[in-house]
Amino acid sequence: MERGQEVDIFSSIIMGIVEGLTEFLPVSSTGHMIITAHLLGLSTDQENVKTFEVVVQLGAVLAVVVLYWRTFVGFFTVKPGDRVMPRLNLLHIFLAMLPASITAVLFRDVIKQYLFGPTTVVYSLIAGGLLMIAAEKWHMKPTAQTVDDITYKQAFMIGLFQILALWPGFSRSGSTISGGLLARVSHTAAAEFTFLVSVPIMFGATALDLWKSADILSVKDIPYFAIGLLTSFCVGMLAIKTFLSLLKKWKLSTFAYYRFGLALVLLFIIL
């Protein structure tokens, strides 16, 4: 991995902090990672830099596993009330991750070739912001107040919106929370469901990317990958709790306006 010539530990830490802070905010972690790499002088055309941007996301996702471990354990246990009122289970997760997973596998090379870059991030920041404003304006009264209230149909609808997150800058949480609102899921439930669905998605994406990029990675990349992953994990633990608190005070459109401002700044810095 190169920063001009080579990346240093400082760059890995900065990238990890940015990832941990933005993975769970609807402002696009991938978009911020691409922008940060650009400002640090890293070449986003390098395959190992692209892979680093995917792998470091796994650190933030591991934070979800730690914070929601009881929920994940619950997927494999049966509660007496399940026969009366179905709770969140693995089928919900499967339905939500299916659309984006299939799309990512089929179009992985196309996405990395044409959608990863500072210019495309500007456009997706704007498009994602418009979707968030629309979802906030037109969503109806929620029928699912908690993740256990989410139906299979709502889970699949959220999954369809998650396809948009394959466009760097669009934001996984932004697209899925927007989809959740339009599917009549509450802000908090949509956010927590987004966290849970991100775990298998990111584990799969990281494994696939490492496998396909194995021939161009080297031993010297491992320390940078590890430092970035560990940093994003620690920061992500704090970011999750903070974001859930902010959702109780701020509308989704607040984050949309931030995205517009960021896009405007990028137009001057990058273009």
Rank of each mutant, 00 (worst) to 15 (best):
F195L: 14
F243K: 00
Y257E: 06
T120H: 11
W250F: 14
W211K: 14
N89E: 13
S245R: 13
Q113T: 15
R3Y: 05
P80I: 09
W211F: 13
A256C: 09
F161K: 00
T151K: 11
R184W: 03
I102P: 03
G179E: 02
R70N: 11
A189R: 04
L95A: 07
H92W: 09
T242F: 01
H187F: 14
Q5S: 09
R70A: 11
L262Q: 06
F72T: 07
L160T: 06
H187W: 14
L267K: 10
G4M: 09
I13R: 05
G169V: 08
F107C: 07
F161I: 04
F24S: 00
P223M: 11
R184Y: 05
H92S: 06
L62R: 03
Q162T: 07
I163K: 06
S43K: 15
I163R: 03
C234N: 07
L98N: 08
V122E: 06
V147P: 01
V49L: 11
E6L: 12
L164C: 11
F116G: 01
F72E: 06
N89M: 07
F52R: 02
Q145P: 01
Q57R: 07
L267P: 01
T242L: 01
P80G: 09
I126F: 10
L210G: 07
A135V: 04
Y258C: 08
L91G: 05
W250P: 00
Y224T: 04
L244V: 05
D82L: 12
L238T: 05
S198A: 15
W250H: 13
S124Y: 04
K141F: 07
Q145A: 12
M157R: 12
F72R: 09
V219L: 10
V265Y: 12
P223K: 14
L130K: 08
L208T: 06
A155P: 01
S253Y: 14
L39R: 11
F107R: 04
V7K: 06
L210F: 11
S11Q: 14
I227C: 03
F193H: 02
